[in-house]
Design a protein around this nucleic acid. Sequence first.
DNA 1: CATCAAACTAAGCGATCGCTCAGTCGCTGA
DNA 2: TCAGCGACTGAGCGATCGCTTAGTTTGATG
Lengths: 201, 201
Amino acid sequence: MATDSPAARRMREAAIAEFAERGYGASSTRDIAARIGLSAAAMYPHYRSKEELLYAISVDGHRGALEALRSADSATDPPLHRLKAVVAAFAHWQAQHTALARVVQYEIRSLTTAHYRHVRQLRQDTTAVLRKILVAGQASGDFDVEPVEGILLAISSLCVDVCRWFPSKTFRQPGQVGALYADLAAKIVGRGAGDTTTPGD
Amino acid sequence: MATDSPAARRMREAAIAEFAERGYGASSTRDIAARIGLSAAAMYPHYRSKEELLYAISVDGHRGALEALRSADSATDPPLHRLKAVVAAFAHWQAQHTALARVVQYEIRSLTTAHYRHVRQLRQDTTAVLRKILVAGQASGDFDVEPVEGILLAISSLCVDVCRWFPSKTFRQPGQVGALYADLAAKIVGRGAGDTTTPGD
DNA sequence: CATCAAACTAAGCGATCGCTCAGTCGCTGA
DNA sequence: TCAGCGACTGAGCGATCGCTTAGTTTGATG
């Protein structure tokens, strides 16, 4: 399907807003189409079904987040610098793309099993970026991250959950969240008093 | 309405399972009733509407979590001990009541504005339990939690998000999560090497 | 200008939604 | 014993759901 045409893109944007606001199950294809002034049937030249629209959004979102993490990382930097950069980028992305992130995080249960499997792979790729850094830091002695999988889970969880509450009364700018979370991650891995510079913010 | 009768309770349990699995908007009153072998109309002697059923569940859940935090706290203990106890209880509750917690955290958008306001108060009460401890620890010099609202948000967020991923491959028991998160909270407030005992696990 | 493909609409399909209503059933207190 | 009441059912209301179909419009291509 031609999911890269301007109309298809606008449909996705409308659907992101609708899905984030009401949830996939409570959103109607009529309301989504109406947001951009089209009739209910206008979706079907671009997406085979409502679920395929969700799938396209979900893949887009997961790829975007993964790309944000990867481009924030630089394997030659010291572990703490890498960790802070990647955590800041992750939290920043979730805050920057709140609506999309909510769809990405909360609506995956509505995907077909085949589509879910693809998306799950992208999620694992994302986690892997952080895991590599933690393992490297543990090996070099820069981090104290035992148990690694637990710390990894917690740091990921922290970043992912940003999309649930952002923006708050005290946090309105994605950069604020990125900076705070980079510092928190540093504290968690046992180097709170170390490098206090946060790349990317 | 007689929302404390055995039938009403069973309806809530069925609805929790359904709402957690599919989301409020995608759940039907027929499917909920069918879970306990009743007809679609059997809900209405107990709840005026589907939304009131969600509201009853939401209030129940928020009260339960709040009570778990409060009964884990003891104002005479040292701040670090209090923090670890309350964080452990919070994370433990989210893990123990995954389905209920998901409804509580993700479906509040489907409440009427009046019902939402009530529930929001309960949420603020819950946050207040943690805030008191952080402020006390900051005042006594036990904690380094600047900015307080940021640290508070992060610790709360960490606990709340447990319901999204629990159980995972490496974390199957609520006590595990409680213990890990108590240690993380201690590291975050700047006393990772201090008291290593975690009450309540 | 004629042709064709793709985007889009109006209408409507069958299914399902939340909810109502008339009536049945079984329990309870006088 | 029996009137009354609340829980519950089966049928069904009007509305809305995802999606299909037939037909119109538009813009690019020969």
